[in-house]
Design a binder for these strands. Structure first.
Lengths: 215, 215
DNA sequence: TGTACATCAGTGAACGCGCGTTCACTGATGTAC
DNA sequence: TGTACATCAGTGAACGCGCGTTCACTGATGTAC
């Protein structure tokens, strides 16, 4: 029953073409957003005929699902890698910001406007658990904030299912959550261009929010 | 040169049909998002032929632009009305949350994923100025926060163009900005469904963020 | 090493669809005398 | 109050388009003996 651990040339080729398709799909998304993603356009860009792509993705939706999963994985891996090289919470914050600025539409594919009917594939919950674990690991060693434990921290202590059994204290749970929501708040508005023309430096606002999280 | 102040029946009729078109457009957007908005589908829903809508909107883009402006106006008016009835910053926060929960896709039409090419019409900047003024009015009378003035507040003091000449002190500018970004962070993640299955109560998280803003 | 066969990537034609938008028109509503 | 004319809302046909997707096929790549 020994399974072959080396991929056949065909398998390698398939994986490579799949990757190339996703590459071009990302370019299209970056240029005009998800709604403009078209299988035929991707095929044309690759010098192939439209139907050829159906050897690699069963449908447009399956391609998008693969892109969503890849985006999630990329973010989780980016944070995990930063954490592995000794980054603290501030390091994670900047890794997150850099990742988001690299490709705003990739960020929005995860955290942007949801399509009312669509539900993300199930395995993304596992990946966001992994992200949460990385955040909680970075929050746990921090000293408790100035203010005494909030009522919401108490609420979190009783509803910590999302932490996946992580032994972080309530204040760490609270901090990880606000790390997520506050930085998302600043980042998403910045990426969407809502700060342009306002005059201040978005990077400084981000830094200020981060500072507040660490205090 | 006296201009008639009473609208002709035809003008009244036109305004009413325009409103009805937008009404149906909102229903479609609520059901399947902006990309699914189709002039023909709206017309069919109204029992009209497709081309008839071109008497009221020059193109699909112009209809969307009108919807964006209406959404902005609705939010600004909601906050202004709350403020006029004596609401403090906490009152504005809850008015904002209620407004967003009423129609998530309307919220996302303003603050959601941007379409790379598209730029909002210019008059929206005037409306968001109005929103900012309402926020600043509510922030001005609050006592300075515990922590001393942050470096970012100093930065804002020198880059206060977005405040439209409002005489609020730097800490108020900072508070109005974080009011916006933090509540948007919590709200947008909640509306996008990123909290579902996590176990905690999004309303309590919102309240906790608001509490922190007021301290 | 060479031949016979199976696998499978990619093509081209075709389908049905709904989209935004134009155009020439009909018929009702409003205006002027 | 009645007639003649202008305005304009709405229709139906039509255009061109690009989409996702299917299908029967060709030809190259890999496998088995």
């Amino acid at each position: 029953m020994g399974q072959e651990d080396t991929k056949t040339p065909r398998e390698r080729y398939r994986a490579q073409v799949r990757a190339e398709i996703k590459e071009h799909a990302w370019e299209q998304i970056a240029a005009a957003g998800v709604p403009a993603l078209s299988l035929n356009a991707v095929a044309k860009q690759m010098g192939m005929s439209g139907p050829a792509l159906y050897r690699y993705f069963a449908s447009r939706d399956e391609l998008i699902t693969a892109l969503v999963r890849d985006a999630y994985l990329s973010l989780a891996e980016t944070l995990r890698a930063a954490s592995a090289t000794g980054a603290d919470l501030a390091g994670l914050a900047h890794a997150l910001r850099d990742w988001a600025l690299t490709d705003p539409q990739r960020y929005f594919l995860i955290y942007g406007t949801p399509v009312p009917g669509y539900h993300a594939p199930e395995d993304t919950t596992g990946i966001s658990d992994q992200i949460m674990t990385t955040l909680l690991d970075a929050c746990a060693p921090l000293p408790a904030p100035d203010r005494s434990a909030s009522p919401f921290s108490a609420h979190l202590a009783e509803h910590r299912g999302w932490a996946g059994g992580h032994p972080a204290p309530p204040v760490a749970l609270h901090r990880a959550l606000t790390f997520w929501t506050r930085l998302h708040g600043v980042l998403s508005l910045e990426l969407a261009g809502h700060f342009t023309g306002m005059g201040f430096d978005p990077a400084l606002l981000f830094a200020a929010e981060l500072d507040d999280l660490l205090s």
